[in-house]
């Protein structure tokens, strides 16, 4: 990273004393973290450390898992997202998500991107919708590759294109926070580079939170990093500091490849 770390902006997400249980299993313990807006925050840590679980708490995707229970307080813009009054459907329009494996719907490219705006009623006319689709594909750096075949099925694209399509789909609902769960783990190096480049651009508009297994990726795209281990946040801070001079022994060991 040649860039200087950005000053910490106002926190977009604040988590306090978050506990997650899967049945009897206590998966996340006492997580406290503040995530600044318009930046990229990376969650790193060994497999099964709870980073994906925590990510899924941020847009209440864990609600769809039977037996999962979340305690503590997670606020976005100062509003507790686990409040009874909050509709997860509305929350997820504000907090978009991109998954590990590209999962385009078996529909056309256009319909994939238009799906979110349609269900949330974000556009009034077809022309507006067309505009949203085009803008989203532009932002996902996919427009030039697919502009001639918007009616072709999304499943026909290459892996990297599919993942960028999923990103386009997520940003079409104009979310404020974008969650990415190991978005490059199923992609080849070239496609990974394209997606990483895209992530760096997205941070100008969105609060991006990315879970990754790759230390290099965290170093390349993020400004802040949180290290998860056995369900707790071991250390959290500016990415540069984490990778050069970590406070915690476990972070040091993980980054230098001694476990994980």
């Amino acid at each position: 990273m040649t860039e200087l770390p950005l000053p910490v902006k106002a926190a977009k997400v604040n988590a306090r004393n978050v506990q997650v249980y899967y049945g009897q299993n206590h998966a996340i313990k006492d997580v406290n973290i503040d995530i600044p807006s318009e930046s990229v925050t990376a969650f790193i840590g060994p497999s099964g450390c709870g980073k994906s679980t925590f990510l899924r708490c941020l847009n209440r995707m864990n609600d769809t898992i039977v037996g999962c229970r979340v305690e503590g307080r997670i606020e976005i813009d100062g509003e507790d997202i686990y409040d009874r009054r909050v509709d997860p459907v509305q929350l997820r329009a504000k907090v978009g998500m991109v998954f590990q494996k590209p999962n385009p719907f078996p529909k056309s490219i256009y319909d994939n991107v238009a799906y979110g705006p349609k269900i949330h009623g974000l556009t009034r006319t077809k022309a507006e919708l067309d505009e949203v689709v085009e803008q989203s594909l532009h932002k996902a750096a996919l427009w030039n590759e697919v502009k001639d075949r918007l009616a072709a099925p999304g499943t026909g694209l290459s892996g990297g294109q599919q993942q960028r399509l999923c990103i386009a789909r997520a940003i079409a609902t104009s979310p404020e926070v974008l969650l990415m769960d190991e978005p490059c783990s199923a992609l080849d190096p070239i496609a990974t580079a394209q997606v990483e480049e895209l992530i760096s651009e997205l941070r100008n508009q969105y609060t991006v939170i990315i879970v990754t297994h790759s230390m290099q990726q965290a170093a390349r795209v993020s400004q802040r990093t949180a290290m998860f281990h056995m369900g707790i946040v071991v250390e959290e801070g500016p990415t540069d500091k984490m990778f050069t001079n970590p406070d915690d022994r476990r972070t040091q060991d993980y980054i230098t490849g001694r476990f994980g």
């Binding site: 459907v89 509305q90 998954f99 969650l179």
Partner: peptide
């Protein structure tokens, strides 16, 4: 399941997911 996740992740309700995906 990834189809369902994708749709829920965009903020679709369950019935929208069923009907449209």
């Amino acid at each position: 399941q990834s189809m369902r996740d994708g749709s829920f992740g965009l903020g679709a309700t369950q019935s929208e997911t069923v009907k449209q995906v």
